[in-house]
Amino acid sequence: MRIMSYIAVGALVGAIVVGTVSIAARAARAQTSDGNRVDVVSSKRFDATVKALTTALKREGMMVVATIDHQNMLSMVGASIKGSKTIEFGKPDMGKMLLPMAPEVGLEMPGKIYVWERGDGKTIVSYRKVAPLYASYGDKKIAQAGMMMDMMTSKLAEAAAKR
């Protein structure tokens, strides 16, 4: 009986430790600053994170539609800021499927991920969840596409941020 209670306490402590570590690790990777914004702390430096993101995009069959290099762009007007790039990406198939059905969904396309350097030197991969926006069009297929987009963006952000 005593042995059983030791085992139960041990399991409980173990579960608490594992849970705490897991929550802490998750908190380091993904913090939701507001309802829809997700910030993932990268374990890599800025340039390596951007490279990992573009590699992940290609691996997932996504196309980089545009890269906006805020840091380089602003150097022309005398502003010296830390690394910050917006990567816009999409899958032509998705547009092909959605836009003929509901052209107004084009407002939410393409997807974008923002990679930026925080004051403490950490690189952050940020994006917004688009599922609520897609769902607002009142069509099941479009709503599903939004959820798929969020899953894909989350996967990409994790791939960019992981060691």
């Binding site: 545009a66 890269t67 290099d69 762009m73 022309m76 005398g78």
Partner: peptide, 26 residues
């Protein structure tokens, strides 16, 4: 420009405008 009096480094902007690469910068 270095002292912050000018709004931008114009020749760099001309290049970006000619190449139409405002998004990626110079």
């Amino acid at each position: 420009f270095s002292l912050g009096f000018m709004p931008g480094n114009m020749p760099r902007m001309f290049g970006v405008l000619l190449f139409d690469q405002m998004a990626v910068g110079p």
